[in-house]
């Protein structure tokens, strides 16, 4: 079937089998391999993307559900391609050593962006609760939590002058 959706700010039209998980569509068909698959029970969150602005584990979505929707993956988070610009949340992960092997990182960053969009000034406990659907085996989460707290501040900076 043909589906039309907005992917990282650009409209896309794709012919897919209806039973295709969005992870497969992204990774195999569209060559967007930044969205990772770390489990087969929707427990790890490595495949988290923004689906109409919500953090969703893309292994739980089938491709037809994208029709008419807006999807953002890690590749599109900082805006259009062709530059080394980072989203404030990506920058915060870099600055606070919020990643080691990098495998959980795309999912963590997407979850964090959605979390801060809903709750612009989260407490540490709220950040920890908000990340409980994303597994990381490297960092012990401490620097990820610090990154999200810093990223929240940075994401809200433009609003300070208003």
């Amino acid at each position: 079937m043909i589906i039309k959706f907005t992917l990282n700010g650009r409209s896309r039209k794709v012919d897919v089998e209806p039973a295709t998980p969005v992870t497969d569509l992204l990774r195999e068909t569209l060559n967007l391999t930044g969205t990772h698959v770390g489990c087969d029970t929707s427990q790890c969150g490595a495949c988290t993307v923004l689906f109409n602005g919500d953090a969703v584990k893309s292994c739980t979505l089938l491709a037809p559900s994208l029709d008419g929707a807006a999807l953002t993956t890690i590749e599109g988070l900082s805006g259009s391609s062709g530059s080394n610009r980072l989203h404030p949340m990506q920058e915060a992960f870099h600055e606070n050593h919020g990643l080691q092997c990098g495998f959980c990182t795309p999912g963590m960053v997407m979850t964090a962006v959605a979390l801060v969009t809903r709750n612009p000034a989260p407490t540490e406990a709220e950040v920890r609760h908000g990340l409980e659907g994303n597994l990381c085996r490297c960092t012990g989460y401490q620097n990820i939590v610090a990154s999200v707290m810093a990223g929240a501040v940075a994401m809200n900076e433009p609003a300070i002058g208003e």
């Binding site: 990774r27 060559n31 967007l32 391999t33 930044g34 969205t35 990772h36 698959v37 993956t73 890690i74 590749e75 988070l77 900082s78 080394n84 980072l86 990506q90 992960f93 870099h94 600055e95 050593h97 990643l99 092997c101 990098g102 495998f103 990182t105 795309p106 960053v109």
Partner: peptide, 21 residues
């Protein structure tokens, strides 16, 4: 110093075995 390897991982440009075609 902040890590040299971060950029590719933060932007989905890592190259893990499952990404290789």
């Amino acid at each position: 110093p902040r890590r040299k390897e971060d950029f590719r991982f933060l932007t989905g440009r890592g190259n893990y075995v499952a990404d290789v075609k």
